[in-house]
Write a protein that binds this DNA or RNA. Sequence first.
DNA 1: ACCTGAACACCGTTCAAGT
DNA 2: ACCTGAACACCGTTCAAGT
Lengths: 222, 222
Amino acid sequence: MSTPRTPLSRERVLRTAVEIADAEGVEAVTMRRLARALDAEAMSLYHHVKNKDDVLDGVVDLIVGEINEAVEKIDAPAVGAAWKPAARERILTARSIFLRHPWAPPVFANRIAVGFEVVRYHDRFVGLLHDGGFSYDLAHHALHALGSRAMGFAQELFDPGDSDASEVPPEMAAAVPNLVAMLAEVAHDDPESTLGWCDDQFEFEFGLDLILDGLDRLRPSS
Amino acid sequence: MSTPRTPLSRERVLRTAVEIADAEGVEAVTMRRLARALDAEAMSLYHHVKNKDDVLDGVVDLIVGEINEAVEKIDAPAVGAAWKPAARERILTARSIFLRHPWAPPVFANRIAVGFEVVRYHDRFVGLLHDGGFSYDLAHHALHALGSRAMGFAQELFDPGDSDASEVPPEMAAAVPNLVAMLAEVAHDDPESTLGWCDDQFEFEFGLDLILDGLDRLRPSS
DNA sequence: ACCTGAACACCGTTCAAGT
DNA sequence: ACCTGAACACCGTTCAAGT
């Protein structure tokens, strides 16, 4: 009667979690919902993952695994000044993976535990910087300066360009004259930003290049 | 018998929420816990706040209110090249407020709705940039490039300097040789980072100066 | 108007029991 | 070993009722 179910496994649980999040958002990923998608009971999951936090940690590492696969494929040796376009390409490739999982950045931001794939990504990035002439000390500062940008996404508090100058209520407009003036001048024609609450492509690249250029200037023997 | 209770109000609810978060962390801020601290029932809160999201939004704005108060106090007119030290001081002052509320950055990162104080902070910042010679267009890019740094905190994915080279397990060490080499060289003597999962002071200022310097270079008539 | 108790519809997770 | 049902201790929130 019942088809032979494929057995549960950590791998399968995590992949299913990503599928649910892609389709319905992260908030839809509950232990009960996850179990239902796997045709099992919620409590069965606990034999393959420690708890819900473990699920989210695993999901993060799964996605960074995707990123590592894509990024290490394009890897060409880059010495000296070539570090910058190489780093840029890595980062924009990483970003392209996030565009398929727009719910992921906020989840990443809230994780404390770092999995192997995240460590691996940063290891390769440090290698790239070092080949480019960075001391390990400067490479360390570079990672901090880039923050989440090193992995392809920016976390922004709010997008002042999202609103229209004409839609600011008058009593508020008087209190924030500079923003109103800015909005009047900045035509924001892109229909929507690409990574949800995050950034859009142009602003991401603007900020990225600003930092990469700054780092290049600090690079010894440049 | 019972002392005359001060009546509930949105203000009082939000202030209490901040107190609880300061003392026990944000996860302790539940409607029931909040009500108990106010000597009321959970359901009474709903007459003063719309729901829990509204509480968190309000808490964010309350803290940015603190920041605005501190930041606008130190405001000296800064035209031309003086924009940079002025922006730097604003941002580091904002940061000092966050040091009193280390639980706040992750909460900020997850909010979508932006309150008046957040808008006001950015309005003044845009004004400062404009007085410094930035076009509104460049000021807009600058806000995006700075992201949360404009308000005084950086969100980092993980701190590679947090671990010790000697404590990396051998089988992992072989897989991430660059990080091991970096950790061996980078002596991390600061006892702990200042903003929880975030950044420490030196790295924050390093990244901040990198961006401010880059922006200054793009500034017209510099 | 402001406040309340009981109840509802969810969570993640523990436990003792099944195969 | 792997899986399960019932139950526990929480959530945020609705509702009808109190003053």
